[in-house]
């Protein structure tokens, strides 16, 4: 039986919780607030959580995060205006050599493309790359098979590339 305290739970899962919240709320400060509330729940239920297996704990955290976010979202009933990921630092681009500048452009375009993905693909991409979850973990958390996660990821990549190409053509 694993035994962990709040600090270790926070260290191991704060990234996952934050980006899971961000995936639902699409807003930095709301995601920050929601993550804080999740960890307040962790403190409240610490005794139960400290002996949980990793997978179980991860599942608990994810579900609490998503539920809190959906709850908060509905309560606030407000339009989320800033439906985009944090801006990339501009200063980096200005000092980059040409090749790197091209790379920065691609990154920015990819960023925008990510926002245009359908929710189902976006969730998978966010959980894998931002929350750093494996495919099997995503499958468990979202209640689908690992094969479905893989196919969603594959389609997400296809769509991202298509969006990038479309953007390049328009640009």
């Amino acid at each position: 039986m694993p035994s962990r305290d709040f600090e270790s739970i926070y260290a191991d899962y704060s990234r996952m919780v934050y980006w899971a919240a961000y995936g639902v709320l699409k807003n930095e400060s709301d995601a920050m607030d929601a993550s804080q509330n999740v960890f307040l729940r962790v403190i409240k239920h610490q005794k139960k959580l400290e002996t949980m297996e990793d997978a179980q704990l991860k599942s608990w955290l994810y579900r609490v995060t998503v539920n809190l976010c959906l709850d908060g979202k509905r309560k606030l009933k407000r339009e989320v205006l800033a439906d985009e990921l944090p801006e990339m630092p501009v200063s980096d681009v200005s000092v980059l050599p040409e090749a790197a500048a091209l790379d920065a452009e691609t990154r920015e375009a990819l960023h925008r493309a990510l926002q245009e993905l359908p929710e189902i693909y976006r969730e998978t991409v966010m959980l894998h790359f931002f929350s750093e979850l494996r495919y099997d973990e995503i499958a468990k958390l979202t209640g689908v098979s690992e094969g479905t996660v893989k196919s969603r990821m594959s389609r997400a990549k296809e769509r991202l590339l298509a969006l990038l190409k479309g953007g390049a053509q328009h640009g």
Partner: peptide
């Protein structure tokens, strides 16, 4: 592509102030 996505994610994550979040949680 994976590497690019990963670096974008890491870069975005580096901007998240987890220490401040931690302090706020303990305060609350």
């Amino acid at each position: 592509f994976d590497a690019l996505m990963k670096s974008i994610a890491d870069e975005a994550d580096a901007k998240v102030d987890y220490a401040a979040m931690h302090a706020a949680v303990l305060q609350k």
